[in-house]
Design a protein around this nucleic acid. Sequence first.
DNA 1: GTTAGTGCAAACCTTTTGCAGCTCT
DNA 2: AGAGCTGCAAAAGGTTTGCACTAAC
Lengths: 175, 175
Amino acid sequence: MALDSIEGSLKERGVRLTRQRQILLELIDKTGEHLDAERLFQMAKEKDPKLNRVTVYRTLKMLKTSGLVDELDLMHHVGDQHYYETRLKQEHAHVICLRCGKVEEFFGEPLQRLRKQIESHFGFQVLLARTEVGGYCAHCQTLRAREVKELRMLALDAPKPAMAARAPRKRARRS
Amino acid sequence: MALDSIEGSLKERGVRLTRQRQILLELIDKTGEHLDAERLFQMAKEKDPKLNRVTVYRTLKMLKTSGLVDELDLMHHVGDQHYYETRLKQEHAHVICLRCGKVEEFFGEPLQRLRKQIESHFGFQVLLARTEVGGYCAHCQTLRAREVKELRMLALDAPKPAMAARAPRKRARRS
DNA sequence: GTTAGTGCAAACCTTTTGCAGCTCT
DNA sequence: AGAGCTGCAAAAGGTTTGCACTAAC
């Protein structure tokens, strides 16, 4: 299991396995993926209310630097936070629907091909690779088309419409 | 030239071509790529000292939303700012050396292949795609090997070395 | 017992917002 | 003329740092 392999890797390098790190590692491992620092912090706080947000950031940074987790942006669809996932699966691309926010993972040979070509083309040693794709998922494409049509009709009805209500911020507030 | 096509696209949509936007568009166009908001602001300030940083952000956001520029992170190698480039060239990956910071661009068929596979696999409509690769460039690989060797020798000489000097912050300060 | 790691508060960088006034068309 | 855009000041979001204390080894 992932947790063991990560803990082993840390122990080997003399990194201390504190209670806090154990909590965080377990959450990252079993929750799967696409956790951001804030969400991880909220979850960890339930297990240890004293655990500090800063520790979450420091732990994530350590794991990232050690090459044990990968950092994602998910096209900044929600905000500017970063997301993390363990480096267990095969390399994959993240496909984000810009309408509903659903994230799919794509595993496919073009990714390995890309890596190899970059290595041989530039004599480059690839350590990290990140592919993120944004667009509309199958479901949202039809909904989107309907929205656009409605907008056009609105525009015809009212050539000089009042200012549209501002869309609510997507960023989540801190508690 | 890019500037014309961008200005045309904006004019068509009734977006005003203000003096500020002309300055910014020209800089983005002729400077090429990989400008972040701050650098763009500094350059624009030389042409118009009154131009405000906020205008830079608003213009970049507008261009991004309009699909006229792409937003990059360059693996956050320098900091958390974003970089922008016009959407003129063929799709390409950005290859960043984590030691010297050099950025290479990779154009190759795996990218088109990837996009097509994602579209057909998920029935997804791809609007944006971003591939960023981090590692060591050919030149830095040898330097890096030397560094590691030196570090190992240091470790042998001094089993309990004093705390290493903290590496300087990579983020650039505002003027 | 050391040293690495933690919590807390405060800072930091990057980006966004509210609003009054200016300016393109 | 009037909506759209700008500048300014202030705030926000996300992350990092300094320092004294704590806990893992």
